[in-house]
C-alpha cells in the first residue's frame, strides 16, 4: 500500500488529463447528436417515402453494428483503403474521427427516442395550434418541443449515462482518454510500470461523474414537473 500512496499523485495527474479528453468527447458528442438526432427523427417521420426509408436504413445499420467497429472503420477506412487520410495525424485526428463516430451513433439512438416523444404528444395539440393560425415550425418549437422533452428525459438520461462509459471505446483507436491513460501504467509511464491499479482506479472517475449527471438530470425532470 505504501507504494500506491507514493504513486497516487502521479497517477491522478495523468488520469486527470485522460479524463479531460473523455469529457471533451462526451460533450462534443452530446452537442452534435442532440440536433442531428432531431434531423434524423424528422427524416424517418417524413411523408416523402424515399427519405424515410433511407433514414431508417441508416439507423438500422448504425444501431445494428458495434460502435467499436464503426470507430475502426471511420478512423482507418479513409487512410488505409482509400489512401486519403482525411482525419489528419496525431491525437487531434483521432479525436475528430472519434467525435464523428460517436455523434452519428448517438444521434441514431436519440432520433428514435425523439420520434417516440413527438408521437406521444396528442394530435389535438397540433390541431389547436393550426386553428390558431400557427405555422408548423411555430407549433413544433412553441408547443410540441417542451412536451416532448418532458417525456424523453428518463430514456435520454439512460443514453447519456451510457455515453459517459461508451467514450472508453475510443481507446480502440488509441485516443488518449482515461482508459488509455490508466493502461499506460501497465507498460510503463511516468516511471511507474507493471501497475494494474491505475486502470481499476479509472472506474472511480466514471462513477463520480455519473453521480453528478444523475443528480442534474433528476433536477431537470423535477423542473419540468410544473405541467402535465
Amino acid at each position: 500500500m505504501g507504494q500506491i500512496s507514493e504513486q497516487l499523485p502521479i497517477v491522478v495527474e495523468s488520469l486527470n488529463i485522460g479524463f479531460l479528453q473523455t469529457l471533451k468527447l462526451f460533450f462534443v458528442t452530446l452537442t452534435g447528436s442532440f440536433p442531428l438526432g432531431l434531423v434524423i427523427a424528422f427524416g424517418s417521420m417524413s411523408r416523402f417515402r424515399p427519405l424515410s426509408y433511407l433514414t431508417k436504413l441508416i439507423v438500422w445499420i448504425i444501431r445494428g453494428t458495434p460502435l467499436m467497429i464503426q470507430l475502426l472503420i471511420i478512423y482507418y477506412f479513409p487512410g488505409l483503403v482509400l489512401h486519403n487520410p482525411i482525419w489528419g495525424s496525431g491525437e487531434a485526428g483521432r479525436f475528430l474521427a472519434a467525435s464523428v463516430s460517436f455523434i452519428f451513433n448517438y444521434a441514431c439512438y436519440f432520433s428514435e427516442i425523439y420520434r417516440g416523444g413527438i408521437q406521444s404528444v396528442p394530435i389535438g395539440q397540433e390541431e389547436a395550434g393550426l386553428v390558431l393560425g400557427m405555422t408548423k415550425p411555430q407549433i413544433f418549437f412553441k408547443i410540441t418541443l417542451l412536451q416532448m422533452i418532458k417525456r424523453i428525459v428518463p430514456p435520454m438520461s439512460n443514453e447519456i449515462i451510457t455515453l459517459v462509459k461508451d467514450t472508453s471505446l475510443a481507446r480502440i483507436i488509441a485516443l488518449q482518454e482515461i482508459i488509455w491513460a490508466g493502461q499506460a501504467f501497465m507498460k510503463g509511464s511516468h516511471g511507474i510500470s507493471g501497475a494494474i491499479w491505475p486502470l481499476f482506479f479509472t472506474a472511480v472517475y466514471y462513477l463520480i461523474f455519473n453521480g453528478i449527471l444523475t443528480m442534474l438530470l433528476g433536477r431537470l425532470e423535477k423542473k419540468l414537473d410544473y405541467f402535465r
Binding site: 386553428v131 417542451l146 412536451q147 405541467f227 402535465r228
Partner: peptide, 28 residues
C-alpha cells in the same frame, strides 16, 4: 393558414397547451 383565422374552433377536449398558464394560452 390565413384563411383559418376567419374561424375559431373550441374542441370537445379543450386541447389547452399544458406548459402555459391560462393567460399564456390566451396570448400565445
Amino acid at each position: 393558414r390565413k384563411k383559418r383565422l376567419h374561424f375559431g374552433l373550441v374542441f370537445q377536449s379543450f386541447h389547452l397547451f399544458p406548459q402555459y398558464t391560462a393567460l399564456e394560452n390566451t396570448m400565445l
